[in-house]
Amino acid sequence: MRPVIKASLHYLALAVVSVLWLIPVYAMVINGFKSDLEVSSTPVLVPPTQFSIGAYVSVFGSLAKPLLNSLIIVIPTSFIAAFLGAMGAYFFYTLSYSYSRFSSTLSDVLFSLIALATFIPYQATLIPLTRLIVDMGLLDTYAGIIFAMLIFYIPTGALLMSMFISVLPRSLVEAAKIDGTGDLKIFLKIVFPLSMPGFISTLIFIIIQSWNNFFIPLVLVTTPEMKLISVAVEAYTGGYGTLYNDTFAAAMLASIIPLAIFIFLGRYFIRGLIALGGGGKGV
């Protein structure tokens, strides 16, 4: 096949995928700007004849607190999960390179358990998780939600970070050992700075995952004051009737933060993934 045709086909395929991904985003953006009447009388993909910010004004008041709540939850959750995950990943790295056969077996077993933990659906842990949080007296508190999220996202962080850490040259860690350095210092001074692109990727991944997490806040929040954004948005699709322009505006507001993170930090996310593919040559 001629290169021109091949390249054109590539771009065509990419264009199709991009359009598929963009259609819902486009619908969300334009319908949020429609008036109450127009949103129910015009097709969903037709842009509004008159831009109205009425829907945004009407939902913002009730979404401000959930947005703030989400930020309060997501920021510590993602940083703690990514950092502790990185520490855990380094621990497995040292175990797997250990001279003792017992520790390397232990590393494999524990690592498989962690991988397994990331595959467990939240729903399956509903009852024990709720009981745990209730017994700790943390139901309907920030600490409770953060703790519950950490249970799920620390293993995710460890799993992702272990991919980034395992490509670091082993001789660096060995050189540091010979220099008389303890593991914590090796991690903080050498391993962590060198896996920074991976850390940022992991962080972004966990921010987006925890921001969008619906089930944990749904179960562990009992008062409207503590509602997180994902649950608050869902409340706009009512059982008796739905104001579509309000729903779209709410969805838009809820997506702004993950979208902004992806737009501004996306290149770090991708750079981290590229460093991984290059066998750690990026460091």
Partner: peptide
């Protein structure tokens, strides 16, 4: 770390 060794690696292993 307790052997009082200095080592130069083939790849030099500079941080």
């Amino acid at each position: 770390e307790d052997r009082r060794i200095g080592m130069v690696f083939q790849t030099w292993a500079l941080y």
